[in-house]
Design a protein around this nucleic acid. Sequence first.
DNA 1: TAAATGCGGTGCAATTTTTGCATCGCAAAA
DNA 2: TTTTGCGATGCAAAAATTGCACCGCATTTA
Lengths: 305, 305
Amino acid sequence: MRYLTTLKYIDVVAKEGSIRKAADRLAITSTALNRRILAIEDEIGHPLFERTPAGVRLNTAGELFVQHIRSQMSDVNRVLSQISDLSGIRRGHVRISSGPQTISAFLPREIARYREKHPGVTFQVLRKNSQSAVESLVSHETDTAIIFESLLPSDIQIVSSVSQIVQIIMSPEHPLASKKTLRLQDCLGWPILMPSENEGIRTLLNVGQVQQATPLQTIIEADSFDMMANYLIFENALGFQIPISIKGQYGIYSHLKAIPLDHRDCKPGLLHIAQLKGRVLPVAAAKFQDQLVQRFNEAFPEDTI
Amino acid sequence: MRYLTTLKYIDVVAKEGSIRKAADRLAITSTALNRRILAIEDEIGHPLFERTPAGVRLNTAGELFVQHIRSQMSDVNRVLSQISDLSGIRRGHVRISSGPQTISAFLPREIARYREKHPGVTFQVLRKNSQSAVESLVSHETDTAIIFESLLPSDIQIVSSVSQIVQIIMSPEHPLASKKTLRLQDCLGWPILMPSENEGIRTLLNVGQVQQATPLQTIIEADSFDMMANYLIFENALGFQIPISIKGQYGIYSHLKAIPLDHRDCKPGLLHIAQLKGRVLPVAAAKFQDQLVQRFNEAFPEDTI
DNA sequence: TAAATGCGGTGCAATTTTTGCATCGCAAAA
DNA sequence: TTTTGCGATGCAAAAATTGCACCGCATTTA
């Protein structure tokens, strides 16, 4: 869209923090870019950037304006995809950010299912922790997000939530594999694979752990649940996971045993589908989000909110 | 804003229904305008207008795009007013549509009160019935609306509501003026000033009237409550009004007597403050809306929802 | 039935806007 | 102190927008 070029330019400058770098990326001269920015600042009657020796940085007005720009651009895309929807088969692009719990096992199946019906739709999947997932929604980088156990700011709208208990995963040959449920005490003797501090599961586990006299023996701390799941093939250790990551038992989780952690040690957490409040999603993204919500309902009928 | 000119042009063409007329209004040549439109249609890859011998008309894609344009433009204005808010005193512009019940007595006082605190803020007040008030919100013509007793579509957000009984107004010398409450039967012998069919009060009265054997003697049907109120000076007739129009008793209503209509004949109606769902209002409009909501609460503490 | 009116679209030249090059002044880093 | 990298600016080239004259077409009018 031609009339959006200046806006796009400003966005890039804001991201690069330098007019020259941005000009380089945009394949134009820094002169031209500089003058476009001066022109629009003049028009607004207020500077958007603070000039520093090292480059430029958004000031308050700039922050406001860039936020507006991003919402404009994603809204244009929505309208354009709606328009091209009018003439012909459904095409579109869905941008989703997801925590490590759902990105590996849950999402691939859902995307495949969606693309069976709408082969023209493409996807962009970003692996994000809770906080950066929220940021990606606010900056219009993604349309929808799956976020586990996090307090969400007021400009985020929760579309659906499902309650997820924490499970302990291990090799089927593990001595504990035959139990129906486990308590944290049972894990004391075993090597532990612990999710990173900024993962939702860790938050839940931390609550339980403070009541323990002796701490768990964490041998690996990682933010990749796949890595930890694969590690269980080689050492008789214990990892943590939520049901949605394992449900259906395919891929790397098919050779693992999952046992619920007793609710006295660890409360269930909430897995949210969320979007930016007040935003109208592109057709494809909205439809995919609907599918995810429906999937939550089907897979965990008792626990969906 | 220069980068919005093309969008503005399209909006005007859509409103005028003719490129030449729009060009005239925009003080440019029809050629230039025509080519801008052709260019953007080419860019979108889909026509926005249907060409007829008499001019042009939006097609479906055009409707989508124009809606987008309007939301963009009002959002730009919001951001710009926010930015100019950063440097200096509060300025701004509030656009409000209001039914005849509130526009005459309630709004003037509220606007004056607001301007005492923020003399820089200007107002645009449009007198609208329920349906056109909703339309003005959807088309971003106004920021907020006061709507009486109407079902609102789902893209309108009700910010606050207050319950309003219907009162009968008359000259203080009227024989009925001493009563505490009135029933519709009491009005049978008297000439009646009846609000127009598309007013909320009329809807409420219609419900009561169907139970009556003999109809009311309507001598004037009008959509102006002021006109009807003034008429009561000259003839001993009866009119209808809701408390918010009279509260405070100043202006033309100060010489009138208002008596509640019995609830068996006429249920209370709801007076809504509403805005377009998902829209972020400009600072000034948001503040003024807040004031209105607070006013509802103060004036009718029992009946505000 | 034929002329007239009013519509959107187009070729071409004039005009305005945007861009790129060379260069300046400035401040932080080396 | 020199060097480096930044944004800003004067000026000419390039690109875009605009206005004029005119076309084809459908409806309205005489």
